Computed example of a mutant assay.
Amino acid sequence: MVEIGKFNKLKVLRQADFGYFLDAETGETDDDILLPNRSTLGKTVTINDEIDVFIYKDSKDRLTATFAKPLAEVYQLAYLKVVSVTDIGAFVDFGLERDLFVPIKEQNYILVEGNSYLFYIYVDKTNRLAASTFIDDYLDNTEDYLVGTDVEGIVYGFQTNGSVMVAIDSKFRGVILKNEYYNRIIPGETIKLRVKKHFEDGKMSLTPRKVAVDERLALEDVILKYLQEHDGTMPYNDKSSPEDIKAEFHQSKNYFKNALGGLMRNNLITQDETGTKLK
């Protein structure tokens, strides 16, 4: 039987002006699948040949074949771009003529036209290919990544406590705890991370922070740049509120204090009750 959303090896039965008909192995002529001329991609097709083609449904709901390679096959995860958003759902670029539909009920968060997200490809009740943002069930846990390893992840949602759900290499589950990030993070965003530890269930605890000394040095550079751009002064010091520091520098107060301490040890700044100044 033909598998929708996958490459199938099918026999070429006959040729028409507009393309070739392929044997769907159902024994019914009406079920033969059309390979349109435009979908041959210039390849030579001969009657009785067995060819590998991708099968999907066209805009008229007919099974259609193509030599084109989509960005993913059915039952796979793929990072796809949203090309339009409508009242009934969104459409994403799949690499073929027809875009993939993402029903409203399969959207775990608001999709934005032009942005890319991680989707699971499936066959719906009408045998059409569709996509879903609910991907957690299709990811695995792993302890193969050593603590301290640099990884890259795609955000695919948020837990109720504010922790960020991240897919590593589009295969494995990871989480960024709420106290590990200070910048705004959005679904579909690709983030460079570091493995902090492994939870008992195998899920990875991740952090966007560098190791402590690198984090401090990077923040020192940010503070110096801020001072240089504000006439050598700022209203923030080691007594400033955590909320003010987070809003301006996207860091915790503890990291901010450590960076100020490093700059003072290097005799680059001074602090008083009004804030911080360049020397």
Rank of each mutant, 00 (worst) to 15 (best):
D52P: 11
D52S: 15
D52L: 13
I55Q: 10
Y56R: 06
Y56W: 12
K57T: 11
D58Q: 05
S59A: 14
K60Q: 14
K60T: 13
R62D: 11
R62A: 10
R62S: 11
T64M: 02
T64Q: 09
A65M: 06
A65N: 01
T66W: 06
T66C: 06
T66P: 05
A68H: 11
A68V: 10
A68K: 15
K69D: 09
P70T: 07
P70D: 04
P70V: 09
L71W: 06
A72P: 07
A72V: 08
E73Y: 09
E73I: 12
E73W: 08
V74F: 09
V74D: 06
V74E: 05
Y75M: 11
Y75A: 12
Q76P: 05
L77E: 03
L77K: 07
L77M: 09
A78L: 05
Y79N: 02
L80W: 04
K81I: 03
K81P: 00
V82W: 00
V82A: 03
V83T: 14
V83D: 05
V85D: 00
V85N: 03
T86A: 13
D87N: 12
I88C: 07
I88K: 13
G89L: 02
V92M: 02
V92D: 00
D93M: 00
D93Y: 00
D93A: 02
D93R: 00
F94W: 09
G95H: 05
G95A: 04
L96M: 07
E97K: 11
D99K: 07
L100K: 02
F101W: 11
F101S: 06
V102I: 11
I104R: 14
E106I: 10
Q107A: 08
Q107E: 12
N108D: 15
Y109K: 05
L111M: 10
V112R: 12
E113R: 13
E113H: 05
E113Q: 13
G114P: 01
G114T: 05
G114C: 03
G114R: 03
N115Y: 11
N115Q: 12
S116N: 08
Y117D: 01
L118I: 13
L118H: 09
F119L: 04
F119S: 01
F119Y: 09
Y120R: 10
Y120S: 07
I121R: 00
I121V: 10
I121Q: 00
I121K: 00
V123I: 14
K125A: 14
N127F: 15
N127M: 12
R128C: 10
L129I: 12
L129W: 03
A130I: 09
A131E: 02
A131N: 03
A131M: 06
A131F: 08
S132V: 09
S132R: 10
F134D: 11
D137N: 14
Y138E: 06
L139V: 05
D140N: 13
D140P: 04
N141Y: 15
N141A: 09
T142A: 05
E143W: 09
E143I: 15
D144S: 13
V147I: 14
V147Y: 04
G148Q: 01
G148A: 04
G148K: 02
G148S: 04
T149W: 09
V151T: 08
V151R: 01
V151N: 02
E152L: 08
E152P: 04
G153T: 05
G153E: 03
G153H: 04
I154H: 01
